[in-house]
Design a protein around this nucleic acid. Sequence first.
DNA 1: CGTGGAACTATTGTATACAATATTGTGTCC
DNA 2: GGACACAATATTGTATACAATAGTTCCACG
Lengths: 238, 238
Amino acid sequence: MNSPDTTPLRSLARLAASDRVAEALSLAIHEHRLTPGTKLGEDDIGEVYGVSRTIVRAALQRLAHIQLVEIHRNRGAYVAQPSQQEAREVFEARELLEPRTAHMAATRATAADIATLRRHISEEHAAMAGGDRGRALHLSGLFHKEIARIAGQETIGGFIATLIARSSLIIALYWRRESALCESHAHHALIEAIAASDGTSAEALMRSHLVDLHTALDLRQTTAPARTLKQALINPGT
Amino acid sequence: MNSPDTTPLRSLARLAASDRVAEALSLAIHEHRLTPGTKLGEDDIGEVYGVSRTIVRAALQRLAHIQLVEIHRNRGAYVAQPSQQEAREVFEARELLEPRTAHMAATRATAADIATLRRHISEEHAAMAGGDRGRALHLSGLFHKEIARIAGQETIGGFIATLIARSSLIIALYWRRESALCESHAHHALIEAIAASDGTSAEALMRSHLVDLHTALDLRQTTAPARTLKQALINPGT
DNA sequence: CGTGGAACTATTGTATACAATATTGTGTCC
DNA sequence: GGACACAATATTGTATACAATAGTTCCACG
């Protein structure tokens, strides 16, 4: 009855196969090794990871649910290409959710949480210094997710996670600045506010940080992104 | 090139099989015909709907993603049982998102939108009068989803949809009043505000409506529902 | 009589085979 | 030479078969 679990680390040690694949694909998308519009053939992916299409399909379905990939019936899965309208919505939603989350995180963060955040930043910094912009972007997303986790809002944190994932696609499509130096600076300021338990400042910093990101995107109606070749030609506006 | 699609109604006419199953299960959960903790065996469901386990698994995975069901590795899928903490989070999130959405809906609603909302209400009223409380609850959820749709915020609307789904489970577990008469009244007032394009009122009405729902739940720490799988199974009163 | 463990059963996890569909290539007719 | 129809190919959709795991039962043993 009360026999202790024989494999306490099971959830970490033995991830389900489809989780592994989904995680790998997600990481590749976050790091911009897979770019929007790329076709994700089931056989190809299965061959890469040494699993059957059953697994791949489950992984793709999961990614489709968080809108990292789009699945077209009988036509396959593609890395999603958020429209400009979707991009606006994603950042509006982030601007609604994340400042509040940052505030909450500031009031709840422990010393260990602060340390984790600092570690994130230093890794991000290192990646940027090493020229691996994709990895830096991924770590930047993890930073935001970590703040949501610290805030202890599981539900809203889940929403934020999907928004961050989509943000990665949006940045791949619509980023217009060359450098993102402001990023690490903004993150650093955020940590200080959180470390000081200054919720109001953290909230304001997060808000301005997101606005900065938003305004660094090129979301003018004129620059329609190149969607799937054929679909773009047949159906221009979506 | 410009050849018209031979099957323009395809997307409506031929829903993917897993979508049908997921929709059916979702409806059953929303209508409280399936209650939290119920085991969802793959073979059983497949037999009911005349599809293979492949389809059922895809459907269950989708429902797991919106947290309507919980999937335990090697142990199967069960209708989810949100904890009291999760319940609080869900309603806090709704109180954050929906008032704003109602405001937006009020500024954008067309005559057709208003008509749709009124139709929803009358159906809900009819279901309640007919004693079908489950169906009334489902329609109540649809009402909220419709408002999000009218607001034109696809992204936030998606979040709200999942929150509404989870709310259905929460109500099944923690509802403490016998009647929900306030419901239809609150919805009626909301429609009037939206029809009058009175965003501020709509926002306030939505907020108080959600607070009413929230406070009508019994979320005291003491009444722990049968959380663990084993306890749920031992308890024969499924 | 209670406990521990090994076989058993039932259910899920995964791979593969087959069916259905979309896309591509080819030939014929105008 | 171009457009259409039809065949060929490739990819996805679904069902089924097999493998692996968790839960259960039953028996031996203390």
